[in-house]
Amino acid sequence: MTELAKKKRPEFRNLNLFSDVRTYRLPLAGFISILHRVSGMLMFILLPLVIWMFDTSVSSEISFGRFSAAFNVGLGFVPGWFIKLVTLALIWAYLHHLAAGVRHLYLDVSHKTTKDFGRQSAVATLVFSIGLTLILGAKLFGLY
């Protein structure tokens, strides 16, 4: 097939927010990079919850009982399932941020910047973070 017969693919140099973003297909490696930033932001936003969870769980036996009860019956007007769901989001954010950070560091050190390796490492990052999140989420919600 000649060059003229092939369908011309659009070339994006300067993306226009209103016209080009809807038609731009982000590769999986770019999607993982964006999720890395989102997970970092989520961990930063939930940092007061992490500090409260740590402080409440190690202060005394009474505070640990209150900490455990927050996951079972809730805390104030917040139901227990919602606290578990937020904790599951925090678990995913930590695992994804760790896996994507190791991926970025490995790419920086090894200089393996091929498109195929970027896609393979992005898939491995997703499988690792989502797989461990499902396992730990099942433990959190009492499935095993």
Rank of each mutant, 00 (worst) to 15 (best):
S57C: 00
S59E: 04
S60F: 07
R66P: 00
F67W: 15
S68P: 02
A69W: 11
A69V: 09
F71H: 07
V73D: 14
G76F: 00
F77A: 13
F77I: 12
V78R: 01
G80N: 10
F82T: 03
I83A: 08
I83R: 09
K84D: 11
K84I: 05
K84E: 06
T87I: 00
T87L: 09
A93P: 08
A93Y: 08
L95A: 02
H96W: 00
A99L: 01
A99R: 01
A100Y: 01
A100P: 00
A100W: 00
G101I: 08
R103W: 04
H104P: 00
H104Y: 12
Y106M: 08
V109Y: 13
V109A: 10
H111K: 14
H111E: 10
K112I: 00
T114W: 03
T114C: 03
T114F: 03
R119S: 11
R119G: 07
S121H: 12
A122L: 14
A122K: 11
V123K: 05
T125D: 04
T125L: 10
T125K: 07
T125R: 08
F128I: 09
G131K: 11
G131D: 05
L132H: 15
T133L: 10
L134T: 09
G137D: 03
A138K: 07
K139E: 12
